[in-house]
Nucleic acid binder design. Sequence first.
DNA 1: CGGTCAATCCCTAAAAAACAGGATATTTAA
DNA 2: TTAAATATCCTGTTTTTTAGGGATTGACCG
Lengths: 208, 208
Amino acid sequence: MKPVTVFIVDDHFMVIEGIQSLLQNEAGVKVVGHASNTASCLSFLKQQQPDVILMDINLSHESGIELCKQVKENYPQTMVIALSTFNQFSFIDKMTENGASGYLLKNAERNEIIEALQMVVKGGTYMSREVTDTLRVVEEGKDDKPSLTRREKEVLELVADGLTNQEIAAKLFIGVTTVDTHRKNLLVKFNVKNTASLIRKAAKLQMI
Amino acid sequence: MKPVTVFIVDDHFMVIEGIQSLLQNEAGVKVVGHASNTASCLSFLKQQQPDVILMDINLSHESGIELCKQVKENYPQTMVIALSTFNQFSFIDKMTENGASGYLLKNAERNEIIEALQMVVKGGTYMSREVTDTLRVVEEGKDDKPSLTRREKEVLELVADGLTNQEIAAKLFIGVTTVDTHRKNLLVKFNVKNTASLIRKAAKLQMI
DNA sequence: CGGTCAATCCCTAAAAAACAGGATATTTAA
DNA sequence: TTAAATATCCTGTTTTTTAGGGATTGACCG
């Protein structure tokens, strides 16, 4: 039986090393390479298509979600398992929407990784137990990065810079009322009632 | 020469495995154990004191900062190197304030880890190159922390919470105009012209 | 003692933002 | 090809903040 070929994408070298170390003595699994960014991952895939990619969700400043989408579009036969830490549950559905077949936490132990790999190569999906548990809690909970539109991001940034609506409108070549609308929408999306809490929350979520 | 003994604290099993794997063939270094939470780390230290602890900053829901403090209080001869990902620069000063001797990013490669270990056992401090780079940017970007009075701090906190002046006044049992004055003074001290930039700046300076 | 600082309060206005309730293209995704 | 999301603009009203000005009290310091 051919071993399952695995490719790792993570911007933390220690994690790559850890996974490789965990899998190196596993007969049915072979790590065929790794990458720390989008470009080098896509470049590798042009040469060779592994059975499974273990893919970190946030690659420094790139998006694992976007990468996942691209990979599945071009190489649908390659399965993707998302890797993440505890505080990124918000992205689970986005990854699955974009074709991920599983979700593993970085504190997963060896058996769990093997199990996940076997599951997805058979065409199934694997969700880390703790993920599904916590998912429920988070759903009810709060602090999720709201997804903003391009314009909303721009406006948020300028508001944080201390510009008034008039100034923002001038800078973006739009009407003051439009800026006002975007701000209203920002307040709704962040579930806050004024600028102060908006900026605080945005800062906490590292969106400005 | 005795090898440097190293203990690892991280809630991500993959990272622990990665570090162990990276260090296992290094003659001068010996990993003597690992923990994934505060309690088991402290428990280990009662039995044995390693030369260095590689300690993740955020342990699920516990605080690496707090753990660092405790460790240094009880075992000052043990050096602590903080481990973190990119987006946690805000904690650097908190770790160093609490006695950490170094700061490593999780994407550090083998050489960097070794270098950091050697540095701190000699009594020095090690800061990841990328960390110091970013620190500099942050340093430049701040016209230093304005010193606030007790009241101003309270008002700032409540403003950041999204309360209006009326609400703040009620909460602090003072007049609305007093709150207003404090806010005026905050704007002056932070050298900003409105709430948005005030909160952004305060957040950047870790004051809220 | 005199001086500074912190904290408290007051006034008047103007500017800005928040709230409410729309409308209309355009672009995107199902 | 619809339906949804996005971006744009409108008319109001109400609330809040900002920008000047000034005043009083107590505490601490040299």
